[in-house]
Amino acid sequence: MIEIDVPAADDMTQLGHRLADELAAGDVVLLGGDLGAGKTTLAQGVGDGLGVRGPITSPTFVLARVHPSLVEGPPMVHVDAYRLGGWDELEDIDLEATLDEAVTLIEWGEGVAEGLAGDRLEVHIDRGRGGDDNETRHVRLTGVGPRWDELRLRQLVLTS
C-alpha cells in the first residue's frame, strides 16, 4: 500500500494522467472516498491520459458510461456504484461484457465491486476534515493481485 498527498485538483488530474500510463485493457480500478473527495476529478485525469472521448462527467445518473478511445487505445468504462444495492445490481449492468477490452473505473466500488476482478487497483481518497481551505487530499493506493505489485505502485508515485 502506498499513500500520497495530493495538494490540489490539478494535481489529482496529474495523478490520473500517471495512472493512465500504467493502465491497459482489462484493468479494473476501484475509486473510493466521500462525496466531493475528488473521484470524478481523478477519473477525468485518467480519461484524459488514456485519450478517450469526453466529457467525463459524473456517471451517478446513468450508472455506467463508455468512453471510446480517440487514439486507438482501450475504451474507458466509467461506472458509479453509488446507487447500487450490492453485487447483484452491479451484475445487472453487465460490466463483464466490456471488462477484457476496456479500462474499467468504478466509483463507490468499495465493498461492492471486488468480485469483478482478482487483479485490481484500489484507490481511496480522503478529504481533510473540516472547513479550512486546505484542499489537500490523502490518496491511498492498494494493489490486489500480481498485476499490481508494490514496485509498480511506487513508480507511479515516484514519477510525480
Binding site: L35, G36, G130
Partner: peptide, 17 residues
C-alpha cells in the same frame, strides 16, 4: 456543481465537529 457539493460537505462537517 462538484465543488459546491464538496463545500456543503465541508461546512456540515465543521459544524458537526
Amino acid at each position: 456543481f462538484s465543488g459546491l457539493k464538496t463545500a456543503v460537505a465541508r461546512w456540515v462537517e465543521t459544524a458537526e465537529r
